[in-house]
Design a protein around this nucleic acid. Structure first.
Lengths: 113, 113
DNA sequence: GTACTTACTTCTAAAATCAAAGCAGCATCT
DNA sequence: AGATGCTGCTTTGATTTTAGAAGTAAGTAC
């Protein structure tokens, strides 16, 4: 069946911007990753430890994804030793207040452990 | 260099509340689902259409999950015809402002389409 | 009766994720 | 000079999650 205009455009439900946001945030780890980078730049291993439970392969994917979305940057510090650090861009930093709000919400409304 | 206690226990990185929040929000569809319910109660099919792309089986799972987390309630209206509607609880409603903030952020910082 | 709706559940196949191992470059300990 | 351990990844299966289609039960519309 062909979708009708009404199906496609629909109502208040289905906020396009929120949909875009959750294309990123709705993927496992991305929110925590950004939250973690909110307290300053960090390296790959540092993020891995901070978040805990994410596999290296997925972490690598996620960081690349967030780079491509323009929310973080990858900076290589030619050493030696060579070190890599990830940092929020302006766009990424702009999300931090919302993450803090979510954190506060979780403290109030989600059972601890 | 040996890691210090401070390194291991850390700082702002690894916010427990944010981690709890993203156990829910970091799953595909949950954020959009809550956002959609933010504009009022809705039935299963209505949510399915509003969100678009979610399969029935996953939608069913997600709704059950959000019920168990206490963010939404499932109300059956014995008809006939029987209708089911999902609605935000107080805890769920408390998240809506954060979702609006995220939506506004996406409008500013995420490329449209 | 035929067609279509809602609210699901069940099935299977495809996609995402995990866990472990490997690799290259550098530092540190003995 | 090794041996060991760190970082920042990539590659390799195995496991988990999700999608997509179909099926069920009950009701409405014609």
């Amino acid at each position: 069946m062909a979708p009708t205009r009404h199906d496609l455009e629909s109502c208040a439900r289905g906020d396009a911007a929120l949909t875009r946001a959750f294309t990123l945030l709705g993927k496992r780890w991305n929110g925590l990753l950004l939250g973690s980078l909110g307290s300053g730049p960090a390296g790959f291993r540092e993020l891995s430890r901070a978040i805990g439970g994410v596999s290296d392969s997925v972490l690598s994917d996620r960081l690349a994804e967030l780079c491509k979305a323009g929310l973080i940057t990858r900076r290589v510090d030619e050493g030696p030793p060579v070190t890599v650090s990830y940092e929020l861009t302006e766009g990424g930093r702009a999300l931090i207040p919302a993450l803090h709000q979510i954190s506060r919400w979780a403290e109030e409304h989600l059972p601890a452990t």
